[in-house]
Amino acid sequence: MPRTLTEVFAQARQENRSALIGYMPAGFPSVKGSIELVNALADAGVDIVEVGFPYSDPVMDGPVIQQASQRALDNGFTASQLFDVIEKSKASTVTMTYWNPIERMGIENFLTQLRAAGGVGVITPDLTIDESDEWISQTSEMAIDRIYVVAPSTSDERLKKVANATSGFIYAASLMGVTGTRSALSGSARELVSRVRKVTSLPIAVGLGVSNAEQAREIASFADGVIVGSAFIKLVLESPNEKEAVEKVRVLAAELAQAVRQPRS
């Protein structure tokens, strides 16, 4: 049985560190390749793997994840491949997906297959809490964590409502924008985390634009989790073959895993 998100964050807290969360789309660069990449992340010390469900219209994603998703779709990606990757993942695994694929499969069908594959949570970047009634009742019934994304523009009042609907951890977007590496960390992340702290005791993980150890270290000093996606995918896109891609991803993951383990002040 994979560890639940609550268990993963509890352990990280016990070790006085942040958890590291790494993102990879399923089926990119191939199904086999994405399984190897996901497990390279796990082996290098990533605590939670986020497996992306490639989608034709990823409005929350920048060029890097768009390109990776498109590659997976061009290769004939199907939902069963997503569950295959999740099943073979060694780490605790959540999936990140736009809403329409879930709606098309049917919530119950999707959650049943996710649970059978060992998935523990779902991040839904374009599902608002206002459209979530059925999602909340079914995920609760199936004991799958519901992770919502909050942004610097989210009002305090709304933060409270979103936090109430969330389980596992809250995904705090570090800035206003789409996924992709950024050279400098936005100042808004720290402020958002402190606003979220005021309304919930759930763990808070920060993502969007985090690409190197220095940024990870900084975020780890005030957040419970550090989420990295595009930086890994960029390495894969730049690699001539899957073997080299896996190696490069392993190296960066290890660096980041060390960064989140820096003693906190």
Binding site: Y148, V149, V162
Partner: peptide
């Protein structure tokens, strides 16, 4: 005023846009 037309409509957007 909540933008639903029967089961259609609504808001399926990143939280970042809800305020706007």
């Amino acid at each position: 005023i909540d933008g639903h037309f029967g089961r259609f409509g609504g808001r399926f957007v990143p939280e970042a846009l809800v305020g706007a």
